[in-house]
Amino acid sequence: MDYVYAFLIGGIVCAIGQVLLDATKLTGPRVLVIFVVSGVILQAFNLYQPLVDFAGSGATVPLPGFGYSLAKGAIEGASNGILGAITGALTSTAAGITAAIVFGYLVAVLFNPKSLR
């Protein structure tokens, strides 16, 4: 059943993104920003956690899930003082961001852009 929930929630988030891309003039990067920030804001009011508990990957894999991890880390860090509040966001997402930078750099150096297909 977990898989069905993951499919539904993940699919719905992506479908919302598709509507934003098609119906508004927002470009891809802007939509990504909106999703991440909305994940942060939702989690600030502890609204995203229930979705993660319910759908697992269905809620964490789409970009609001990235915003959720950032906010969650910052909120958890806040209980350890101001330094924790500042570093918490990056600590919780360090693995993903580091992987994206290092592997992204590697891929970009190794591969060449392709022309049209």
Binding site: P29, G73, G88, I97
Partner: peptide, 22 residues
């Protein structure tokens, strides 16, 4: 160049949330 805005906005807003919580 494209991912920067996502990181900047995401991390800034999360840090703000953390500071408010603190």
């Amino acid at each position: 160049s494209l991912a920067g805005p996502v990181l900047v906005c995401g991390i800034s807003s999360a840090a703000l949330v953390g500071i408010i919580y603190w």
